[in-house]
């Protein structure tokens, strides 16, 4: 259907002018701070930064070739995935259970919520410092309480799990609050109807809560996976450079920081961060496809 050509009204012209005036600060900022840098980083990944920061030498795919043959990078990828596979499911299950428990009128509800959310407002640098102290193998509280002598953060086999524990502890309250607000949107009549039909407790949880909460669960899952794949602060603060377990715990972002800002090899650092970008894109696409199978939007 051909639209009749109409004259540009003054309202339309005003909306055009003001629309652009309103978005121009944001768009200029985004283009300069984000959009151009994406291409610059990809471009940089084809260069080798000269010694002592002198000049850039085009090396083509050399950084990528080096990366694919670099066991440290593969190990970092594995560490990152391991961390995500620990942190995300465990924190989501615990916080989902807590949210279901707290989603009722009860005494102390807001006190519990406030306490559980507390790690969210603490600086990760401080959180990592205190956990490092709790994990200390000689004088740490944890070994004392358990009566053990475990090297929580210097044994290459378990250090990544210890770091995941800190990650889980830090994020439970946040996930729980997101689940709580999702739960509050489920109408109470569903539960009443289910009670009349004799479904209680776990049956209600499984047949009503889970499907109706699945959009929230999906959302938390996707944002948490992406967040966990970018883990840096905890590892940076907990692991000394001399720590024998460092190689088994350093994440991709840690390596990115190490190469880009400590060893000043920005070309190689860029190649690593491009790998991270691809990884996160894959997860996003995979989840977008997968969600159709198990998320129920009404």
């Amino acid at each position: 259907m051909a639209k009749p050509k109409k004259k540009v009204t003054s309202q339309e012209r005003n909306e055009f002018i003001w629309g652009w005036i309103f978005i121009i600060p944001t768009m200029l900022g985004l283009i300069i701070l984000n959009i151009i840098p994406i291409f610059q980083t990809i471009y940089q990944s084809f260069f080798k930064t000269g010694d002592f920061g002198r000049g850039n030498i085009f090396v083509g795919l050399e950084n990528y070739q080096k990366m694919f043959g670099d066991s440290q990078v593969w190990q970092a990828l594995l560490n990152t995935v391991k961390y995500a596979l620990m942190e995300v499911p465990v924190s989501i299950i615990i916080s989902l259970v807590l949210a279901v428990l707290l989603n009722r009128k009860m005494k102390g509800r807001s006190v519990y919520r406030t306490i559980m959310f507390l790690p969210m407002v603490a600086a990760p640098a401080a959180v990592a410092m205190v956990w490092r102290w709790l994990f200390n193998s000689d004088f740490g509280l944890l070994n004392h309480v358990l009566g053990t002598k475990i090297n929580w953060i210097s044994s290459p086999d378990i250090a990544i799990y210890s770091i995941a524990v800190i990650g889980i502890w830090s994020i439970i309250g946040y996930n729980m609050v997101l689940f709580l607000s999702g739960l509050q949107e489920i109408p109470g009549d569903y539960y009443e109807a289910a009670s009349i039909d004799g479904a209680t407790g776990f049956k209600q949880f499984w047949h009503i809560t889970c499907p109706l909460l699945s959009p929230t669960i999906f959302f938390v899952l996707i944002t948490r996976i992406i967040g966990a794949l970018q883990v840096f602060d905890l590892i940076f603060m907990v692991m000394d450079r001399a720590n024998p377990a460092l190689i088994k715990t350093q994440s991709l972002v840690y390596l990115f920081y190490e190469y880009s800002f400590r060893q000043k090899n920005q070309g190689y650092g860029s190649a690593i961060v491009v790998l991270l970008l691809i990884l996160i894109m894959l997860v996003t696409v995979f989840q977008m496809v997968g969600q159709k199978k198990w998320v129920h939007y009404n």
């Binding site: 985004l30 959009i35 610059q40 992406i226 970018q230 880009s260 650092g269 961060v273 991270l276 996160i280």
Partner: peptide
Amino acid sequence: MVLFQMMIPSQIFIIPQY
């Protein structure tokens, strides 16, 4: 473009921003 930026991990901006 706004939505696109939200999907990108922020570390990719850091070297050019620096």
